[in-house]
């Protein structure tokens, strides 16, 4: 089996597919790529099934050598993608000849590159998925320099010249996300619920696959006291005791003890994965 040899993983490089749904009752979250649309796109571009395992590279600084001729596609964050020093186009299938080095330089737009590899990253599955769950410590270890990541057999589908969905670079300015009501919206004052939509929030540096904290005014509670822990869904926005909202990510705990005021609509969820620290965020009601 051919492989991708990792020279430098960058800030963080994780193997991710679309996760392991259906195990929350056993305390195992779905996990999976933070930007699911970007992984699915990268996979389609190289002829893989949408859920094949790829690499999620935070910010860049990633370098890897293909042991045999390989096809890759880089989606999600935008920044310089080089094959043996020559810049390649984003969001298209790119040939990486045997022995050539693929390099992802620091992203200029967005935060997380998704790298699809024709054949998929073929590390062993854990509980039906190749995703790394950073909170639970499940799945393949974070990718390290010197790792040899096996590449699976060629899929039947050809490498795609174009995808039916145009790929846009993540935006740099204010990002608008759609919200639907959360199960505990009634734990908050009317003023807090209005403030949620009237505020330009700032993405905190405290952002990872577990959650993305937002900085802004305090969201006051109507109901005091503790909430018994309850299961959350992807995109749940929980509000801490101090009144700060956090959008829960793919590696969130299966249950949480803070009230969920709202939920980021599925159509907006991938954009949360690409928010950079300090980036402004606004919310609007999902239509």
């Amino acid at each position: 089996m051919t492989a991708l040899r990792i020279v430098a993983p960058g800030a963080s490089c994780l193997v991710e597919d679309l996760g392991r749904p259906g195990l929350a009752r056993l305390g195992v979250g779905r996990s999976g790529a933070a930007d699911r649309g970007a992984l699915a796109l990268a996979n389609r571009l190289v002829g893989n099934a949408e859920g094949a395992a790829g690499l999620e590279v935070l910010l860049g600084g990633f370098r890897a050598v293909a042991e045999a001729d390989a096809w890759i596609a880089v989606t999600g964050a935008r920044g310089p993608v080089l094959v043996d020093g020559v810049e390649a186009s984003p969001a298209v299938a790119v040939r990486v000849p045997a022995g050539a080095e693929l390099e992802l330089r620091p992203a200029e737009h967005g935060l997380r590159y998704l790298v699809g590899v024709r054949g998929g990253i073929a590390v062993p599955e854990v509980l039906g998925s190749r995703s790394r769950d950073t909170l639970a410590g499940l799945g393949p270890d974070p990718v390290a320099a010197g790792d040899r990541l096996p590449i699976g057999p060629e899929p039947e589908a050809p490498v795609a010249l174009l995808d039916r969905e145009a790929a846009f670079a993540p935006v740099d300015g204010p990002v608008v996300l759609e919200l639907v009501p959360g199960p505990r919206a009634d734990w908050f004052t009317d003023a807090a619920r209005a403030l949620l939509f009237d505020t330009e929030w700032r993405t905190s540096a405290a952002a990872d696959r577990v959650g993305t904290r937002l900085e802004g005014p305090v969201l006051d509670r109507l109901v005091a006291g503790e909430l018994a822990s309850e299961a959350t869904v992807p995109g749940s926005m929980q509000v801490s005791t101090s009144g700060q909202p956090t959008i829960l990510g793919p590696d969130r705990p299966v249950t949480g003890g803070y009230p969920v005021i709202a939920i980021v609509a599925p159509a907006s969820l991938d954009r949360v994965a690409q928010l950079r620290p300090g980036q402004p965020v606004r919310f609007r009601h999902a239509r």
Binding site: P183, A185, E230, A231, V233, V260, I263, A265
Partner: peptide
């Protein structure tokens, strides 16, 4: 309780 388009709490 509402919990998005794919869940009920």
């Amino acid at each position: 309780l509402p919990s998005g388009p794919d869940a009920i709490l």
